[in-house]
Design a protein around this nucleic acid. Structure first.
Lengths: 367, 367
DNA sequence: ATGAAAGCGCTAACAT
DNA sequence: ATGTTAGCGCTTTCAT
């Protein structure tokens, strides 16, 4: 049933059009009584069932009848009422997307991917940012249990594992992006943070950098911890012990990159040879701090970030690319599959890729 | 609902909460029914009206009754059904947002503003990108006429004026962002593109630049034309006639900035003193072209952009700030006011601001 | 192939 | 303050 809903129906929608082919809105008052199915059926002396069948592309309608109905629909400018349909079908053809915040290029990239696939399968998107406005579980509850959406994509949310685990157990149509949960069979799409970090650190080491600073992410965050783990593994493998003073705490925001780097320099310490910031935002902050103090990148300090946000190529930032768009696509697909088949692959981990630009290891344009 | 079916408990329909206050989903069953208003009212021996009143915060309920109801709601894990409510009220508490595409930092900034205000007034957001997927008027129709949303914010869409004018005439709750329409009384929020461009060109002239190139935007686009108009006005005012060879056609995409600048230089022509790109994306393209050819900014060529996108401060780009966030806020406000009062200010034009950074007129950090 | 009718779950008069 | 009830507009058996 879900399956059919994905493929049928919408194409037979018709609206009255003027000579340039666009919809004309006909009614006059503020609360125009919209044309209903009933109106159409009465107009034709048919039953609502038949008109409904035509709207939904049922084959059990005589072609002649179908044609009449379609014409009437066009003439009367009928648009089917979404709420009524959703109520009757118990299905909304809508996917919910909840982001923890609206900052950074990250979210818009992921959203692109989600939108791409959702549109393909004729789903609308309802998006929310749980940015301090309300409890995430409440949002989830209203969306899913309240029937606002058919499925939900949760983007690296700060939500108790317990909650997610239970959702998974019930096979709630929920997909997690970049936020795996231990011991739960919930659909999730993430990227290989460990390998990504390894790529970055290896690159730094291969290029001969010795005093490498690592700017970490927020404590307790999945991706931050995975990335840090990757760093440690490389250091171990090559038998190095990083200078603890060069392991800096960060919070994934630009400001913390700026502050850490500034603090280090302002204390009169010798700059590290290179900095690996566990995300691009912080790397950019580091860049700013360096520029302010007339230190060259990479000549004085090499720099590598993580994510490859939109600004990265503009800044010539060497970084590890997160497949954000692709994660979005897969998340949509997972939900839709879940809706169709009641199950889907629970776990997909996408590969990262080191993108070498000017801030570390790249060819510089001018001497 | 499918959704509920997946989430639902056994026949007793409970969503008890665990100690941390989060919803626990208990059952394993895939087909049971969700808790409804009726269930709650029957459970208490009250009418659905009373329970509904409690849900809607009506004052005409005895406190004792209210308390009983609230407890039952919690016990039974009742979440009200959105579709049913929307159908009965003919109201969705949802705002639709349609963007022409999903590129550039522009959209996410505007969306932030929209979301901020929408959340404040307890509206959900339904967003779509009419990115070549379907006709914009169709989307508008499905959203508005189909009752998916209460109001619509259209972001600089490529939609016939005729259509918009009619929508306005019907006082459909539609707000336009950065896309004024002649002769229509439709709510719109834009920025002062003319003055913005004037600020940029004046700044360039004041700083003594003579051979100023202007990189225009796509023909027929409102903001592109307004900005170009502003340029011309300043040139006129100071009695200059810009060299026509230095008026370049662009399309607001980074690539065109890169190409124009490259083409000029590769033809062996002397670079202009300065370039005013009518948006930041193109300015960034120009920067890249210059950097590739070892030309310094602003030493060899000064550069000014328009918009102040996220990357602008990182690149030290002098530019004219578009109040994107604020436009989003005002658009939300306009719609909500329209919904409440049936009318709103039809036109708001926000001021721009010149942001002086390194690429023109700013203090350079290091000689 | 078409129709009749029973909901879907909620709100909002209109009673009481 | 609480109950009754008639919709909201559509889908979907079940008849015919």
């Amino acid at each position: 049933m879900q399956v059919k809903a994905l493929t049928e129906g919408r194409d037979c929608l018709q609206y009255p059009r003027n000579e340039s082919g666009y919809i004309m809105i006909v009614s006059g008052n503020m609360t125009p009584k919209a044309t209903t199915l009933q109106d159409v059926s009465r107009h034709l002396g048919l039953s609502t069932a038949t008109v409904s069948r035509v709207m939904n592309g049922s084959s059990k309608v005589r072609p002649a009848t179908r044609a009449r109905v379609l014409r009437a629909i066009e003439e009367l400018g009928y648009t089917r009422n979404y709420a009524a349909r959703a109520l009757a079908r118990k299905q909304t053809d809508t996917l919910g997307v909840i982001f923890p915040n609206i900052d950074s290029g990250f979210f818009s990239e992921v959203l692109k991917g989600i939108h791409e696939v959702a549109t393909l399968y004729k789903f609308q998107l309802m998006v929310a940012f749980s940015i301090g406005t309300r409890d995430e579980p409440d949002l989830v509850s209203e969306y899913l249990l309240g029937g606002r959406v058919d499925g939900l994509i949760l983007m690296n949310l700060d939500m108790p594992e317990e909650f997610i685990r239970q959702a998974a157990q019930q096979r709630l149509p929920v997909a997690l992006v970049d936020r795996p949960v231990g011991g739960a069979d919930v659909a999730m799409v993430s990227l290989d943070n460990v390998i990504g970090a390894q790529q970055a650190v290896s690159h730094l080491i291969e290029h001969g950098y010795e005093r490498i600073a690592v700017l970490k992410g927020p404590e307790g965050t999945f991706d931050a911890e995975q990335r840090w783990l990757g760093c440690q593994q490389v250091f171990d493998r090559v038998g190095r012990t990083p200078d603890p003073r060069l392991i800096w705490e960060g919070d994934f925001h630009r400001r913390s990159g700026y502050q850490r780097m500034s603090a280090w320099l302002d204390a009169g310490r010798q700059p590290p040879d290179a900095v690996f910031a566990l995300n691009d935002a912080m790397a950019i902050g580091v860049m700013e701090a360096l520029r302010e103090r007339n230190l060259g990148v990479p000549d004085d300090v090499a720099l590598v970030g993580f994510d490859d946000v939109e600004a990265a190529p503009l800044l010539g930032l060497t970084t590890v690319r997160s497949p954000m768009r692709e994660m979005g696509r897969l998340a949509s697909e997972a939900i839709i599959e879940l809706l169709r088949n009641g199950r889907t692959r629970t776990r997909r981990v996408l590969a990262t890729e080191l993108v070498v630009r000017q801030t570390c290891g790249g060819h510089r344009a001018g001497g």
